[in-house]
Design a protein around this nucleic acid. Structure first.
Lengths: 332, 332
DNA sequence: GGGCCGTCTGACAACGATGTCACGTTCACG
DNA sequence: CGTGAACGTGACATCGTTGTCAGACGGCCC
């Protein structure tokens, strides 16, 4: 900047004025400065600029998601990016991999970097630690999972409703042995999905067989192994509810191995690319990830803009997308 | 920081020393400062710190990919994140959507933010503009597509080889009418894939029918429409090579619509989740995206660390993954 | 007891930019 | 022709931190 000022024969402040398009600079001077900027490839240092500015915005949005390579997280991130762009804000993204300590470290790091806002899909069960972290820190919006131990904005689908829709759909067709595959039981949304699965049974005066419920499944392989074990039962399930996208993938693989893809009904939670091209096409509970991301972005930028309403919990209704795999009837 | 210093009864510099774990601070003072830091929830301002430091690192890696929600980009991003973490570096990610102007803007923005390094999957055909941008800017590594008009490191698969493997695989089984679906013809890697597709034909003394080659397909829907049109030809293709992951998805959908999934052979470029669960499972050319990302991260951090070797072009060999869809024989 | 050294600490400038304010011109007006 | 407002510009302090250097202090040696 000093060099630009020297080359243009003006003061630092005037260079600043031109670079920031402030008024009150004569056309002549503006041109001279612009020429010098081009000639020297001058790029303002955003960090220094933000340091000095009164309304200090780093133009950074922190996004902590479960796993960047997972289609759900990736879709969410993309929606956040689109929501951030109009605000001239870039997205700092990181994966938590369900790591609680990692969540803490990453939040700390992002706060130190003075992000303007934070969108987080928490791995931890409680986020009390955020209270101090955020006392004078950036606004936070929770997605996919609700905040615990702290009051904050959140956007998520009704997990219990989604699971209930899925299980009810299978039960309505006459299935009475509906297996349930779930992710880590310690996660609140997993508990919600489990509750929804049970509620669907109870609404019909039924009780799910505990032997058909498997929790703490993290990978497709684990889900496949669980399904194979279930199929080996004396009284195997005639339908399966997979409480997470990759668990549905594992279930499909297991059913394929036994040649039962057209025999055992399957409904998954979370849509994913190509689900409609499977054979039979996969019936799923869809969460509108784009809408979730856009809503989260709106909320966080609202807070950044000074919105001080009491925190809102936005709940988005999931929908059942019937494609075939969930409409296989039980054996006569 | 001033408050911490006051509370601990020491100078600013001493707080700095304690926070940065510098030696030469008595245990007593260190404890007092640490207590004050905790009490006041003090967080060092990374931007200010980097501004002053001699070896200024922002701890930011810029990653410009085609589309964050695409499984290929997402997988790459994840690998970059993993490669960046040991260097205490966070990833600033953005989507280009094949937008040339957008690429320019985003690069400019990232340079202004003083990222330590840049990994870019370029949308533009030539990157001359980067020469000035990077004269005293961060090191850049290109992924997936080669740099043009600028000398820089790059990591990518051999696109021509991949396409050749795919087309040769189909031709070897006796197919003589192998359609080719391709993305934007202006993109160099698309040209490479086209060349590979042609080379496979020429190796057998054949010439691909221009009527079976469709370029400038961007979406699954466009690919599906193209395939339907091809199937309506008087002499339709007996096999299809889809030069990009979502084009394969479109092709599958079109074949499904005509009930030809087990009749027309199909090989895709780029693997994706669930490709093995399709019926028939999809035969693809796989690029090891994790390896590409890790290699790119290694290269960019090498440069950041002061490596000044002449730029390297790392080429990773794609592999043919046979699963079924590509092994359908031509009609007798 | 004087000199020297090592240890610990603080004062000050600097990183690259912007907010504040005051100064010098120009020009319309009475 | 004097006055004052409007305009254009620059000097200086400042943002939150770290590099440099100097000084205070205690202990050791001769």
């Amino acid at each position: 900047m000093r060099d630009v000022a020297a080359l243009a024969g003006v003061s630092l402040k005037t260079v600043s004025r031109v670079v920031n398009g402030e008024s009150g600079v004569s056309a002549d001077v503006r041109d001279r400065v612009a020429a010098a900027v081009l000639r020297l490839d001058y790029r303002p240092n955003l960090a220094a600029s933000n340091l000095r500015r009164t309304v200090a915005r780093t133009g950074l949005l922190g996004a902590l998601v479960q796993d960047l390579s997972n289609s759900y997280s990736a879709g969410l991130l993309r929606a956040l990016e689109d929501g951030a762009r109009p605000h001239r804000t870039a997205v700092l993204a990181a994966s938590l991999d369900e790591g609680i300590e990692r969540e803490r470290e990453l939040v700390h790091d992002l706060v130190s970097r003075r992000v303007d806002g934070l969108v987080i899909m928490p791995a931890s069960e409680r986020q009390d630690y955020l209270v101090t972290e955020l006392r004078s820190g950036p606004p936070v919006v929770f997605v996919d999972r609700p905040p615990r131990g702290i009051v904050a904005d959140s956007v998520m689908v009704d997990h219990a409703l989604g699971a209930r829709l899925a299980a009810a759909h299978l039960l309505e067709q006459g299935h009475r042995r509906v297996a349930g595959l779930f992710h880590l039981a310690r996660i609140s949304t997993v508990q919600d999905r489990l509750a929804g699965y049970r509620a669907a049974h109870e609404a019909l005066g039924l009780t799910p067989d505990p032997g058909l419920v498997v929790t703490d499944l993290s990978t497709a392989d684990e889900a496949a192994a669980a399904v194979l074990a279930l199929l080996d039962l004396a009284d195997p399930p005639t339908a399966i509810f997979a409480g997470r996208n990759i668990l549905a993938a594992g279930a499909v693989a297991a059913l394929a191995e036994r040649g039962l893809r057209r025999t055992v009904a399957l409904v998954g939670f979370d849509d994913f690319p190509l689900a409609d091209l499977l054979d039979p096409p996969l019936t799923v509970i869809r969460q509108d990830v784009g809408r979730i991301g856009r809503t989260a972005a709106e909320m966080v930028f609202g807070r950044i803009g000074g919105d001080t309403q009491t925190p809102r919990q936005v709940v988005i209704e999931p929908t059942l997308v019937t494609r075939g795999s969930g409409e296989i009837p039980p054996p006569a």
